[in-house]
Amino acid sequence: MTSLILSTTTRFLLPLLLMFSIFLLLRGHNEPGGGFVGGLLAAAAFALHAIAYSVGATRRLLIIDPRALIGAGLLIAVASGAAPLAAGLPFMTGQWWSPEVPALGKLQIGTPLLFDTGVYLVVLGVTLTIILSLAEE
């Protein structure tokens, strides 16, 4: 069921949606957003691609199997929680750095953001694994 309009639109929409999903992830700590909704949006973008083209095409575009994203996400989340252990603090104590970046000014980078990135990857991987394997039925 490939339609020319859908596939052309998707070609433009996909990068926009992915960028927006990352935007949602990054701003999530201060504004509505975060890893859950970001991951879901990215998954929806890829699902759109799969509908517009084919599951095979989406898998080629992804390069890595979505299942690997689940594992990577869980690892990142656990690692971000384990990082404070090195400093002798309890598991999942938030750690923050404020480096000065020339163009962007003062940034706030912390382990909770890393954790949210893990959530993003797990949600993306889970959703894509479910949808793509079902679509292949």
């Binding site: 999530g28 201060n30 975060g34 949210d116």
Partner: peptide
């Protein structure tokens, strides 16, 4: 600043 997100990730 987003308290819901802070509860979730921190």
């Amino acid at each position: 600043r987003n308290i819901v997100n802070v509860i979730l990730v921190d």
